[in-house]
Write a protein that binds this DNA or RNA. Structure first.
Length: 551
RNA sequence: GCGCCCUUAGCUCAGUUGGAUAGAGCAUGUGGCUUCGAACCACAGUGCCGGGGGUUCGAAUCCCUCAGGGCGUACCA
């Protein structure tokens, strides 16, 4: 339990106890611990008196007074309890609390900020899963940044995390891919060809075809069209996948598992999943197709699982995939990071999961709102069909990995965001990522200049300035921030929290000199900023953003 | 038609799950380096929390309704 949690728990206990002494039932779970908006009210507050007002039919202020009179603060971090406003009970902590926070940071170092709400549960986070028919485009960039950081947050929160990429290497799009490649291949040798309807028109298709032609020349001209397409598709898939891996690697995203959709077919998982769906008794045949009675499982409409031509629809291998994750591989939780255009897909997937007897809460779905790229105050238009798009590699080359990852996580996944390329590049000093990195570099610089004398044991009780206390108060919240971020899947809390710490540090820096007259105070302050450096570094690590010592 | 998401300062966004006077950054204005990094700090102004009802001690937050924007609603993926 962190120092912060200990203090919080003490307040909860003493509050529940004090209410009990008044002759009223009030459990610890009912105590709502809050942080007052105005710091002059202290570190914590509870609104217990207001909660009890309607029950006791008394003025909340009077109730608050009675609760306070019964409070036992001996041997706790609480120094002072007071009543304010409509009946808030406010708590001020003793200095020992702040000292213990810094000691805790030193003791835990690179692990400071971790918590154990995950209790070792196994979580699978599947994200990006870009279509392997082409390069990773900008739309996937947000999902990549958020998915990767979410995975990291969950791991800090005590979950055992697997990062996974689902390769859509089966079905319709693979055929279109192969047909598109074939057309370009034939075109190259001056043969007759028809470009498939809805095929992939991007230049990279020509490049892949050219590459194959360079290596194998006219070899495929004598083949049947079907085998030709298959060979080209497989060749192109290999190419694209290695390019996708390269781009993601450059972006700082590394996967534990690359899961092939096609392998689900090959291993009979799709057929098996169809059987399982039938066994639920919620399927029926109509017009030669197999339908799932999703309307019985909380979905507005029924939908088709197997078409009348015998081929499964797109959702069938996906059901098999989730069955594989949640049943076969026994993950406790599976999280999917999807684009907002898939939101209609959520109730369908959940209804299937439910019908199969799996607790739907084990499936967490994050819907990523779209990103619009803005340049010169204008929205950059992209067309995947025409192959006009900005790739992840382009973005990283233009704004850098640090800025991209930080900014994508800076906004909650649920907000539509505009990514201003000019702002991210030209006015890079306005970018919050540099603000945080600057704070880190600044601390490193100070510490390196004082390194010779840093070994002396510091007297942390000398840290009494308002800016010093504020700084400690902020860094003390770390594990709490991780816990909330993990529970809400909200990665944006982390960069925002990092900015808050950087800001508290800069304020401190401008108000208090580290290298000051009194040596003992100097050591105490060195210890303080050393602790802050650890926290900033840990936060940047979680974000996958570098923590430079010089800028 | 039905369903989901969004709407908070000039701009980009927070708002601790219903609490105290609604906050940051950017932009604007003023001030701060003979001493640790001025990529920084301090101070200043701006709000019909999209509109209107309701729930209660108390609403930006929960419910209803209307408006605007985005996206779904295939035997496409």
């Amino acid at each position: 339990m962190s120092v912060l949690q200990q203090a919080g728990q003490q307040i909860i206990s003493m509050t529940a106890e004090a209410v009990g002494a008044l002759g009223t039932e009030f459990s610890e779970e009912q105590v709502r611990l809050e942080v007052p908006k105005d710091k002059s009210f202290g570190e914590f507050s509870v609104n217990t008196a207001m909660q009890l007002a309607s029950v006791l039919r008394k003025n909340p202020r009077q109730i608050a007074q009675e609760i306070i009179a019964n409070m036992k603060t001996e041997n706790t971090y609480v120094q002072e309890v007071s009543m304010a406003g409509a009946g808030f009970i406010n708590f001020r902590l003793s200095q020992r609390y702040y000292i213990d926070v810094i000691k805790e940071i030193f003791a835990q170092g690179d692990d400071y900020g971790k918590c154990d709400i995950g209790k070792g549960k196994r979580v699978n986070v599947e994200f990006v899963s870009a279509n392997p028919t082409g390069p990773v485009h900008i739309g996937n960039a947000r999902g990549g940044a958020v998915g990767d950081v979410l995975a990291e947050i969950l791991s800090w929160a005590g979950y055992e995390v697997t990062r996974e990429f689902y390769i859509n290497d089966a079905g319709n799009q693979m055929e279109k891919f192969g047909a598109s490649l074939e057309a370009r291949y034939l075109e190259m040798f001056g043969k007759e060809f028809t470009f498939p309807e809805g095929g992939y028109e991007g230049d990279y298709i020509k490049e892949i075809a050219l590459e194959y032609a360079k290596a194998h020349q006219k070899k495929l001209l004598t083949e049947e069209s079907e085998t030709r397409q298959e060979i080209l598709a497989r060749f192109g898939l290999e190419k694209n996948l290695s390019e996708i891996k390269r781009a993601l690697d450059e972006y700082g995203v590394a996967y534990d598992v690359w899961y092939s959709e096609n392998s689900l077919y090959e291993q009979g998982c799709v057929a098996e999943a169809i059987e399982q769906m039938k066994k639920t008794g919620s399927t029926y045949e109509e017009d030669g197709a197999l339908w799932f009675r999703a309307s019985e499982w909380g979905c507005d409409k029924d939908f088709v699982l197997v078409r009348s031509n015998g081929l499964p629809t797109y959702i069938m291998p996906d059901i098999a995939y989730h069955l594989n994750k949640l049943q076969t591989r026994q993950f406790d939780i599976a999280i999917d990071v999807w684009g907002a255009d898939h939101h209609g897909y959520v109730p369908r997937m959940k209804s299937a999961i439910k019908a199969l007897g799996i607790d739907e809460d084990r499936l967490g779905i994050i819907l990523m709102q779209f990103v619009r790229l803005v340049r010169q105050e204008e929205v950059v238009r992209m067309s995947k069909r025409r192959g006009e798009m900005i790739t992840l590699s382009d973005l990283v080359a233009e704004v850098g990995r640090d800025a991209a990852r930080f900014l994508f996580n800076y906004y909650n996944f649920n907000t539509h965001m505009d990514f201003d390329l000019d702002l991210a590049v030209e006015k890079s000093n306005e970018n919050p990522v540099f603000y945080v990195q600057y704070a880190h570099a600044r601390i490193c610089s100070i510490i390196s200049q004082l390194r010779a004398t840093e070994t002396i044991e510091a007297d942390l009780s000398l840290l009494t300035e308002e800016e010093e206390i504020e700084l400690i108060k902020v860094v003390a919240r770390f594990s709490e921030e991780i816990a909330v971020a993990a529970e809400t899947f909200d990665t944006s809390r982390i960069p925002k929290y990092a900015v808050e710490i950087a800001s508290a540090f800069h304020t401190f820096y401008n108000r208090c000199r580290v290298r000051c007259e009194e040596e003992s105070l100097m050591y105490a302050r060195v210890a303080l900023i050393e602790a802050v450096r650890t926290v900033l570094k840990n936060l940047l690590n979680i974000l996958g953003v570098s923590a430079p010592e010089k800028m």
